[in-house]
Design a protein around this nucleic acid. Structure first.
Length: 280
DNA sequence: CTACCATCCTGGTTGC
DNA sequence: TGCAACCAGGATGGTA
């Protein structure tokens, strides 16, 4: 699912409804998502004020007024839906419902239930087992060519797999890895340790660029994903290679009949889309 | 370290 | 049309 641009869009959509609001009521409709929810989950949220909504990688962090943080991940199919009508009946897979003192409702809906929520003390946030090994934020100051090169040094795994690894850089998923490799003109098969110097510079730049453009478009909408106001993101129309097998490469001017256009292959069990002519 | 696989779930699409 | 197989934006954990 949702990768960094979609999660960023969700956070931006939630802020007007949640920041500064107090949770008047929290409905927990099942005991577990991907993992069990913590003991007393709903009761511990009830009455708390949400001070800030932040994003770290693909995680949503709601900082509460008691120095705890509501940590959430959307998994593959998770959505945060702001209910226009608070009386509207709950949908299937609406697992958690937050009701604010202003009467707004945020419903966490997750069909495949690969998402998670947890309550974490602010002081131990960085040491949380899901956060402690995350690499740098790709849009932060710590992410650049040399930093990426250092992470890739010595790694004999394909660059595609290295970028999907959240320890290398945090927040990329299958779509944006394919897109970034295309713009950096690097083959997804290239071994990670060979991406150094100018290539690492170019890749770091491509990652930043594609994420920035995707956020500006409100993310990509596949089957499940919508912005929290119900609008669709539209970056899926801007994909250069993802889900475009057989189409013409937007960077080459060759005849499709001759080159076959964009290819699809499977790497570590996931689809990779690329242009074999342009990406080396 | 690395690759590979299974796993958690549901639902939409494809192919026979 | 029916039904089964396959596929999907994520991420962990085990094995060899």
């Amino acid at each position: 699912m949702p990768e960094l641009p979609e999660v960023e869009t969700v956070c931006r959509g939630l802020r007007p409804w949640l920041e500064g609001a107090r949770l008047a009521e929290v409905m927990q409709r099942r005991a577990d998502l991907r993992w069990p929810l913590p003991d007393g989950f709903a009761a511990r949220l009830q009455g708390r004020r949400i001070e800030r909504v932040e994003r770290r990688a693909k995680y949503i962090l709601c900082h509460l007024d008691n120095d705890e943080v509501l940590l959430a991940h959307l998994g593959m199919s998770g959505r945060m839906v702001v209910a226009a009508d608070a009386d509207a009946p709950l949908e299937p897979h609406d697992h958690i419902v937050l009701v604010t003192d202003a009467g707004a409702q945020v419903r966490f809906n997750d069909t495949r239930r690969f998402g998670m929520m947890d309550l974490v003390p602010e002081s131990g946030l960085e040491r949380h087992w899901l956060l402690k090994d995350l690499g740098p934020e790709p849009l932060g100051n710590a992410f650049n060519g040399p930093a990426l090169a250092a992470k890739l040094a010595g790694r004999r795994t394909p660059i595609k797999a290295a970028l999907l690894d959240q320890k290398t850089v945090a927040g990329l998923g299958n779509i944006y890895v394919c897109e970034a490799l295309f713009f950096a003109r690097l083959s997804p098969r290239r071994l990670a340790y060979t991406v150094q110097g100018r290539r690492a510079e170019s890749l770091a730049h491509a990652v930043r660029e594609v994420l920035t453009r995707a956020i500006a478009a409100g993310g990509s909408s596949l089957r499940d994903y919508r912005q929290s106001n119900g609008e669709l993101g539209y970056f899926q129309h801007d994909w250069a290679v993802y889900d475009r097998e057989g189409e013409a490469c937007p960077g080459c001017d060759c005849e499709i009949a001759a080159c076959g256009g964009i290819r699809r292959m499977v790497q570590s069990g996931r689809s990779t889309f690329y242009c074999p002519r342009r990406q080396r």
